[in-house]
């Protein structure tokens, strides 16, 4: 396959998995502007390194690049004040802020809807508040549905570490939600 065709392939792959990329970046960086920029960086970098894509599991390959770009961005921002500031702001505003970022579903039962939105907001806040190492594996496993092996490769860590972070992360979330009297 020539380079041009490979670049097209990679470009299409990235576009197909754009929501996955944005979702990961948004959860890692905590705000829309940086998430968008990181995904854009990743797109450019993916096209540049299209020759390294060996085919096969494209999603994990592409998300690895996205993740690197997110961390590059965090580093670049030094202490990461921008991110911290916005995350803190969200934490301070609490559920109101979290609800704002969550799309509303069709409302037929406004009250029920509000309760569901509140519950989603709580989970959202808990996940956002988790240490990055747990938040990252939870997003990759539960939302993006990657396997242990894919996550281990993406993060360059042993599968055992993926398992322990995932377990710990789930535990923390369940505890936090339970503590809020949230468990059914």
């Amino acid at each position: 396959m020539d380079l041009a065709a490979r670049r097209t392939l990679v470009g299409e792959l990235a576009m197909r998995q754009l929501d996955a990329a944005y979702n990961l970046a948004r959860w890692l960086l905590g705000n829309d502007a940086d998430a968008g920029d990181a995904v854009h960086d990743a797109f450019v970098r993916a096209l540049q390194s299209a020759h390294t894509y060996a085919g096969g599991n494209g999603k994990a390959w592409w998300l690895t690049i996205v993740r690197h770009c997110c961390f590059a961005r965090l580093k670049e921002h030094g202490r990461g004040r921008r991110f911290v500031a916005i995350d803190q702001l969200a934490a301070e505003l609490g559920e109101a802020a979290a609800q704002r970022v969550l799309p509303n579903t069709a409302a037929d039962e406004p009250e029920q809807n509000a309760a569901a939105a509140q519950e989603r907001a709580r989970l959202h806040r808990q996940l956002r508040g988790l240490p990055e190492e747990y938040r990252e594996v939870l997003v990759l496993r539960e939302i993006e549905e990657l396997s242990y092996r894919e996550i281990a490769q993406m993060l360059s860590i042993p599968i055992g570490t993926v398992m322990s972070r995932l377990s710990r992360g789930r535990e923390k979330l369940l505890q936090a939600l339970g503590a809020n009297g949230d468990r059914p």
């Binding site: 041009a4 097209t8 299409e12 990235a14 576009m15 968008g36 854009h40 579903t105 959202h124 939302i143």
Partner: peptide
């Protein structure tokens, strides 16, 4: 609702940057 979707503007920006192979 837990999954952020890529904004349309970003999608457009990247689509414009897509390599035109053939």
């Amino acid at each position: 609702a837990m999954r952020y979707a890529a904004p349309a503007a970003l999608r457009g920006r990247l689509a414009a940057a897509m390599p035109a192979a053939r």
